[in-house]
Simulated assay, not measured.
Amino acid sequence: MKLNKLAMAATFAVTTAATAGVAQARDQIQIVGSSTVFPYTQAVAEEFANKTGKPAPVVESTGTGGGMKIFCQGLGEANPDITGASRAMKQSEYELCQQNGVTDITEVLIGYDGLSIAVSKKGEQLDVSKKDLFLALAAEVPVDGKLAANPNQTWKDVNSSLPDTKIQVFGPPPTSGTRDAFVELVMREGCKEMDFYKGQDKKYIKANCSRMRQDGLFIEAGENDNLIVQRLEADPTAYGIFGYSFLYENQDKLQGINVGGVAPSFDTIADGSYSVSRPLFFYVKNAHRGVIPGLDEFLAEYVSEEAMGPGGYLNERGLVALADDKRAEVQDAVKNGKHMTRYETTN
């Protein structure tokens, strides 16, 4: 392991030397990735700068997928040190990193978040099933025994117990980890509740239950979740999809809708009764540790009890804290730069 880290450090040094004529060595940590993880990382960046007097890390909200592409471009000061993610790194992304020399990565589970479907405080609170959400938002749904373009225009068309108001939902784009999670946790699960899809394999479900409608009733709102909040404030008949932290921070303006009779909250996300929940991560290049000034100290701050523990400042911003044993495991992995091996195979 020590030889591997030395090799990575040497590679980083060569890459940095090659770019030295273009720009001076940077003194700020660079972070990209998920819009959901962004506010947590930004909070840690501010705390780190206040405590150490070092420059605050530069944090960009690029979306999970976009962040992975940037993160995996290579080593050296021209490339970011960390990427946030609202889902686990995919095998294809891991392989891209490997191809570009980013071979020593630590995966850091920071806590849990619920995917909230929210509406203005002035709007109508709904209680929907995953099947209802699928029928409202899917590109194609069963019509007279076969798949057809989604004809549902109002919530009442979806379920007679729901209001007769037009379906209008703002949500994340395909590059977002929030979109990936919503498709997996809601769309595919919702279609499985329908007789039409009974007995179909995972490949069929993935191919036919993943696409969001594109007729104007589902609106891709970009990677900035705050823009969705603003649009919901402006239109009480519209609904929006984003991480629970944004709902928590805007409780004076918004309310979450129930999914399967359960509202999103710290308790329901932590105990799993709110079924639309997911883990949040960040990934760090171990070759950059000890090279980029302040990176080790920033990582220590991120996984400290003061930050990610129960009652910590990330918990206060909406992050659901890990159990004590899991949190200790994560803290140890960060301290020792544990190498991610999920996609590695042995010969």
Rank of each mutant, 00 (worst) to 15 (best):
A207W: 08
F242L: 07
L227R: 14
P236F: 05
G240V: 01
N250I: 00
N250H: 04
A234E: 12
K202N: 14
I257L: 13
D235Q: 03
Q251H: 05
A207Q: 14
I241F: 04
L232V: 03
G260H: 10
A238V: 08
N224R: 11
F242Y: 09
Q214H: 13
E223S: 15
Y239C: 03
A234Q: 11
E220C: 11
G222M: 14
L232C: 10
Y248E: 04
T237Y: 03
V229W: 00
C209M: 05
P236V: 05
D225W: 13
Y204N: 12
G243C: 01
L217F: 12
G222A: 11
L232A: 05
L227A: 15
L232N: 03
A221G: 14
P264H: 06
A263W: 06
D235F: 02
K202Y: 12
V229P: 01
K206V: 05
L227E: 15
Y239M: 10
D252F: 02
L227D: 15
P264Y: 01
A263R: 01
F218W: 12
L254I: 06
K203W: 09
S265M: 03
G256P: 00
Y239K: 08
L254H: 04
G216M: 11
I219P: 09
E223Y: 08
G256R: 01
G260M: 09
L232Q: 05
G243N: 01
Q251C: 04
V259H: 05
E233S: 13
P264L: 05
E249F: 00
M212S: 14
E233L: 13
S245V: 00
M212F: 15
G261N: 06
P264A: 09
N258Q: 15
G222V: 09
D252E: 13
N224H: 10
Q214S: 15
A221Q: 15
F246E: 00
E233C: 14
V259E: 04
F218K: 05
L254A: 04
Y244A: 07
Y239H: 11
L254Q: 04
G216T: 08
Q214M: 12
G240E: 00
N224F: 06
I241H: 01
K206T: 04
E220Q: 14
N258I: 08
